[in-house]
């Protein structure tokens, strides 16, 4: 170790704030970039899946009308 104690490590002879703010910015932005990129791929896969499902519905109108048929009109008295 280049430092005698943990507090000396944090203070770094007065240079602590400079060193630690740099490392904080580095980790914040790098982890942010990694998480954002992972989420983008997940969102892209989701978007593709939704597209295929829409396509499948359009190609199969019977299935669409079958699901629409489950909405049956019910007469409710207005009194």
């Amino acid at each position: 170790m280049a430092f005698d104690s943990f507090s000396a490590f944090m203070v770094m002879e007065g240079h602590g704030p400079y060193v630690w703010s740099c490392y904080a910015a580095f980790f914040l932005l790098m982890i942010g970039l990694m998480v954002w990129s992972l989420r983008r791929r997940k969102a892209a896969i989701e978007a593709c899946r939704r597209g295929y499902e829409l396509q499948a519905d359009r190609q199969d109108p019977q299935a669409a009308s079958a699901s629409a048929a489950s909405f049956t009109r019910v007469k409710v008295s207005q009194d």
């Binding site: 170790m1 280049a2 430092f3 490590f9 770094m12 002879e13 240079h15 602590g16 400079y18 060193v19 490392y23």
Partner: peptide, 14 residues
Amino acid sequence: GLAFAPKDYLQGNS
């Protein structure tokens, strides 16, 4: 680099 490398004789820990 943070904890084990020796400090710079001119610039210190920065």
